[in-house]
């Protein structure tokens, strides 16, 4: 299950962060997302020499915490997507697929002429679409 999804801007500032958990651990998720930016930095600064593709947007598993796994994705405009999930056995393909759909939703949201680039995303449509994608991810990984 995805517990948190975040969009992080150029100055490592949160543009959109949404947790999908009943428990009161939203703050912890904020911390986890924030910490994962270190890994993103590390990956971006020391790219894998043997990596399959140079301009791969999917960063893979960033780090495992005690109960969560954190995945990252870097768009070509250097906006970071962070995904926190509680599933311990996640297929990379599912995560990639999720990020692709999420990226599409993000692109649509920032293409809104009333959206100012670099500001937080406050669109309700985006939020709804994200929660749909998140739910769909739960189904696909379960099945």
């Amino acid at each position: 299950m995805i517990v948190c999804i975040a969009v992080v801007g150029h100055q490592n500032n949160p543009l959109y962060i949404q947790s999908f958990t009943e428990a009161d651990d939203a703050l912890k998720l904020h911390h986890i997302v924030h910490c994962s930016l270190d890994v993103v930095d590390e990956r971006v600064n020391n790219p894998k020499k043997s990596g399959p593709l140079l301009n791969e947007t999917f960063l893979g598993l960033l780090y495992p915490t005690e109960n969560y796994k954190v995945y990252g994705y870097l768009t070509n405009t250097k906006v970071k997507f962070i995904l926190v999930t509680t599933d311990l056995d996640v297929k990379d393909a599912d995560v990639r697929n999720f990020f692709r759909r999420f990226h599409a939703a993000y692109v649509d949201a920032v293409s809104n002429p009333f959206h100012v680039p670099g500001k937080k995303i406050t669109s309700r449509t985006f939020a709804e679409r994200v929660s749909t994608i998140v739910k769909a991810f739960g189904l696909s990984s379960a099945g």
Binding site: Q11, N13, P14, L27, H30, H31, H34
Partner: peptide
């Protein structure tokens, strides 16, 4: 946190 705009933190 101030620098990076993590308001909740």
């Amino acid at each position: 946190y101030r620098q990076e705009g993590w308001v909740i933190l």
